[in-house]
């Protein structure tokens, strides 16, 4: 039985009838997102699923303020994202959103600590404070003893932990993870998911994009996309 999801409190993200059309020329328009309504509430734990081409990556980019919609509204903590210029979007990405990518996207030549520090550099935080915060973020993900290692000296799971620490270091409102376990074996993937569960229990809001059912099973809320539209938005029935 489908149980519709009901959020609690003021939504962090409120998007209405959001559209993203890619014009490929000659009446050949791709409707990547075709009128999506979605509210994300504090401490949500959402899994966005859908077959490839369903628009989940586009939605992810949109939610992460990496991309702007061609139609519809987007409010982030009550502020109109569609009206923001590039610097304001950069500020939102820096302060409010923590990204975790499938392929980690770490700086290969930088140590763990420096990788984690990076968002704070763009926030203009002085060095000593940066290092302190970065260090405690590393400890949060269980990498307190790996701060001087470079990515090539770490295992895949550890690398993704670095990426999670980097996403957490600015205390963002939302963690956005795009196939966070896609490049990991299932055992390591499970460990990363445990980390997300723990972060959720500590009060973080988490959005996962995945196509793996057992990863999605960790989330409390399940959204299924098809052809740029939300097909299902429900309390996760697979959670166990």
């Amino acid at each position: 039985m489908i149980q519709p999801y009901k959020g609690v409190g003021e939504p962090l993200i409120d998007i209405g009838r959001v559209e993203k059309f890619y014009d490929l020329g000659k009446a050949n328009t791709v409707r990547a997102l075709d009128g999506v309504d979605l509210k994300i509430y504090p401490n949500d734990y959402v899994a966005i699923m859908g077959p490839s081409g369903s628009g989940k990556s586009t939605l992810m980019n949109m939610l992460g303020c990496l991309d702007t919609p061609t139609g519809g509204q987007y409010y982030f903590e009550g502020e109109d994202v569609a009206e923001m210029d590039d610097n304001e979007l950069a500020f939102i990405r820096n302060q409010k959103i923590g990204f975790v990518f499938q392929s980690f996207n770490l700086l290969a030549r930088a140590s763990t600590l420096r990788n984690v520090e990076l968002p704070l550099v763009y926030a203009g935080i002085p060095k000593w404070e940066r290092q302190e915060k970065a260090y405690s973020a590393c400890e949060k993900v269980g990498l307190g003893d790996r701060v001087d290692h470079k990515p090539n000296e770490l295992s895949g799971g550890q690398r993704q932990r670095v990426a999670v620490a980097r996403a957490l270091v600015n205390d963002p409102s939302i963690l956005l993870a795009d196939e966070p376990t896609g490049n990991l074996d299932s055992k390591t993937g499970a460990e990363i998911m445990e980390l997300f569960d723990e972060l959720h229990s500590l009060g973080n809001t988490i959005i996962l994009v995945t196509h793996e059912e057992d990863i999605a099973a960790h989330a409390h809320r399940l959204i299924r996309l098809r052809d740029g539209k939300i097909e299902v938005d429900q309390v996760n029935p697979g959670r166990g």
Binding site: G64, L66, D86, A90, N94, N105, Y122, R166
Partner: peptide, 16 residues
């Protein structure tokens, strides 16, 4: 390019 994308995603401005 990917590094640029990553930096932009974690808050680098165009000017950065």
């Amino acid at each position: 390019t990917r590094e640029i994308g990553t930096r932009r995603a974690i808050g680098a401005r165009r000017s950065s």
